[in-house]
Write a protein that binds this DNA or RNA. Structure first.
Lengths: 230, 230
DNA sequence: CACGACCTACCGACCGGTAGGTAGCAGTGT
DNA sequence: ACACTGCTACCTACCGGTCGGTAGGTCGTG
């Protein structure tokens, strides 16, 4: 969406094909473990031919990650950010994000998750800033949900990173031919973090809605953030 | 504990110092991004000197990971596995595991988390089997806790990997000088997944204990596992 | 004939790994 | 007392191969 790869805007399809091919390889073998030779060959080119399209290896990774962030924002964030109810927003967001990870459509997203410390300098800062926007989005939803008594109160930063951990860790263990489908995982995790309100809750029976709102024994005021990454 | 590095058992301290030095570097720069030259230099040796102690680069990584699993089992598993109450077991386990990740004592553990797909063949299978023991441990605790009505019922595999995701993802974002301490994070996450029983619960008031036990709308029977990794 | 797309051929540096030598030390036979 | 042996713990010097990257040429198309 944003086209932050730093290239001429209309070079278009061929360039994106290179990004996707490179992403496939880097996702399999890791960034350092993938040579430009291999990437070029997978693009049916020589190394010099590949370098006609890109500046260097690190900029290639940067472009892949930006492309991945574009895909994420298009397929997750943009589809849920207008949901008014903060808990429904979080539920939908979790579902979309889990499916983005489990279905292998975007190797670029997996690379963002795995190579979280590979980029350096400005490129690293730029990607981290795009990630932080997602963390901020989650923190705000958690803050609203806590405040409105829709979930058991939790520090928004802890909530956001707990959410992210559950969802994003999936890339490390999920196998599409396993016994659990991605929908089952999504259902289960949504239900763990955001259980539906029962009839008792909506009717306001004693000890029901209040149950999930019991203040923590201590440190309920911790609102700091160590965020930077996601 | 297990000494599975494949070396003579009494070589001892020097060898472990090499593992720790190598782990520090690999944790910082990644496995593929760290050269044997650099590792040797950090050990105040030449490369050939280093190769006197190890067989090759991959076996070095394997030994580091086994050492990390030893440390994990010693500092987490062994301290909680005898707790009778499954929820208390999970709570304590989560706390210990979070602190193992946040305090930088064992770079070996971080390497296990990050380089989850670097090893191949038998070495990979061996480490994966050690990880799977932990997943099994968590699944059993989740199964017991669900069955005894101590937590909202959840598929044990989903529960285990949700637990692991929250806990292990921390290595990607936690900074010790951030505004949240590791204890605050541990408290918050334990409270999210395993909220304490209230007085209302123990007294058996209507709509209280039952609240967290509402059966899921569907798919409550999914018990498969895609597990392999942690 | 200008230009983008791609090539061959090459660069210096570095990769993981090894052959073969040496310095120091414990044990031992005389 | 001392030479000799065997061993560990390293070293220097080097291997073939690959790394990221580039200079400069070719060729089809507008």
């Amino acid at each position: 969406m944003t086209n932050t790869g730093g290239r001429k805007p209309d070079e278009g399809e061929r360039y994106r094909a290179i990004l996707e091919t490179a992403a496939r390889l880097i996702c399999d073998r890791g960034y350092e473990g993938t040579s430009m030779q291999e990437i070029a060959a997978a693009c049916r080119m020589t190394k010099a031919g590949l370098y006609h399209h890109i500046q260097n290896k690190e900029q290639l990774l940067f472009a892949i990650m930006n492309y991945g962030m574009d895909l994420f924002e298009e397929q997750v964030l943009s589809r849920v950010q207008d949901i008014a109810n903060p808990v429904e927003r979080l539920r939908a967001c979790m579902r979309h994000n889990i499916l983005l990870v489990t279905r292998g459509w975007s190797k670029e997203v997996i690379i963002i998750l795995h190579e979280h410390a590979t980029l350096t300098g400005e490129a690293r800062a730029f990607i981290d800033a795009r990630k932080k926007k997602y963390v901020d989005f989650l923190e705000e939803a958690y803050g609203q949900a806590s405040q409105q008594g829709l979930i058991r109160p939790v520090d928004p930063t802890v909530g956001a990173f707990a959410f992210l951990g559950m969802v994003l860790w999936i890339y490390k263990w999920f196998k599409p031919d396993g016994r659990l489908t991605d929908e089952q995982i999504a259902d289960g995790m949504v239900d763990m973090l955001f259980p539906p309100l029962t009839a008792a809750d909506t009717a306001g029976l004693p000890g029901s809605a209040a149950l999930r709102m019991v203040p923590r024994t201590a440190a309920a005021t911790a609102t700091g953030t160590d965020s930077e990454d996601a």
